[in-house]
């Protein structure tokens, strides 16, 4: 989780990823941010995040992103 928070803060400084739970719904993360985050996560954890995974549920909070990464790691 710490690594994920580090990646998120590196891509979008100034966003409170520890408490925010509507990153997509409230328009805090834009498509450009998401692509940067996906690139970093894929690189760091060796997973493949596809367009189908880009849903609000998967990206609304750091925890949701953490769960997505774990799910994809298990599938790998």
């Amino acid at each position: 989780m710490e690594k994920i928070l580090e990646i998120l803060e590196g891509c979008c400084p100034g966003v409170d990823f520890e408490t925010e739970t509507a990153l997509i719904d409230n328009g805090i993360l834009e498509s450009l941010d998401i692509v940067m985050i996906v690139g970093e996560l894929s690189d760091e954890f060796g997973i493949e995040i596809t367009v189908d995974d880009l849903t609000a549920e998967n990206f609304n909070s750091a925890e949701a992103i953490f769960n997505l990464v774990n799910k994809l790691k298990e599938e790998e």
Partner: peptide
Amino acid sequence: KDYLFYPIAL
């Protein structure tokens, strides 16, 4: 965004 940007960028 959904049908060009994401498929290209990812």
